[in-house]
Write a protein that binds this DNA or RNA. Structure first.
Lengths: 157, 157
DNA sequence: CAATGATGGTTGCATTATTAAACTTCATTG
DNA sequence: CAATGAAGTTTAATAATGCAACCATCATTG
């Protein structure tokens, strides 16, 4: 009667949610991508119970989203920073943000906008392109069975 | 001691997660975007308990992600279909999918790839652009306080 | 048109997860 | 070296989840 795991699912959306699809993980990842790295920083920022935070940090490290490094201030404590796999979640955060910007009932309650660092201008909406450069929306897409992986070509003996 | 709500949060990521950030909602939305619309279809596809499904469908309708319509087969049952607000979640599903495609440990277990319907070719990765057309990654972005909303200009009395 | 089965739920109970608070341990500071 | 703080762990209560069984309605068949 455990909470059902999505780990073995064949759907890539489900597989991603299995890794960081719980109530807190994405917010921890958001905080990490904003530069927060200490246990206390996460705890204060998110206001979640410390045991839950400890548990989430542990599994995010196990799953290769975060890694622990010695604290940058020279203290004996450690810090949690995103791995490349963790930084790869950035587009998901952007997509979530843009959905709220577009559909939230109370957009006035949204405190920040994402801008490009150089110019300080708001970023544009994420765009999905076809290989030939056409812009696609949901109706223009379909799902196909994944082709069998190509093996590394073996040099004939 | 209720589960902490993210509804009043000022972060748009948290606000989105408050709407569909639980364990099942995004998968229901994924199914809906694949054309599933009947209670039984969702239940069979997701394998979740019926009471949980009923509860999720109810809140997704409440929150304007799904709407109930009379069944298309003429029967007296009803169906759940995405609203525009629900269809707006599509880029988030794409981003999740692409993260798994790029970082999953066992990509061979992913059953499907997203293609453009016309040509049948895989779609490209989502791209974030600056207003001037430069491609941005996480390090090229920053968050700024949201400017106060412009009031509707009032005609002087 | 009564019986049977499928659809779309609800209810009750067992299990799991989340919370808050107290407690521990080690490191740093005064 | 006592006191404070950081980073957790433990404990107990509450909330969410999962499972199974039940129920109501609609649909189909004899």
């Amino acid at each position: 009667m455990k909470r059902t795991s999505l780990a073995g699912d064949s759907c890539p959306v489900a597989r991603a949610l299995d890794v960081f699809g719980d109530w807190w993980s994405l917010l921890i990842i958001r905080d990490a991508s904003l530069g927060r790295r200490r246990f206390g920083e996460f705890q204060e920022s998110l206001g979640l119970a410390k045991n839950i935070l400890a548990s989430r940090l542990r599994t995010l490290v196990e799953r290769g989203i975060l890694k622990m490094i010695p604290a940058s201030d020279g203290s004996a404590y450690q810090e949690y920073v995103l791995t490349p796999k963790g930084r790869g979640i950035f587009p998901i955060l952007v997509a979530l943000r843009q959905w709220s910007e577009e559909f939230d009932e109370h957009p006035d309650e949204i405190a920040t906008i994402m801008v490009d660092r150089d110019k300080g201008k708001p970023v544009k909406k994420l765009v999905l392109y076809a290989q030939d450069g056409r812009v696609l929306d949901a109706a223009d897409t379909a799902l196909k069975p994944r082709p069998a992986a190509k093996r590394a070509r073996r040099v004939p003996a």
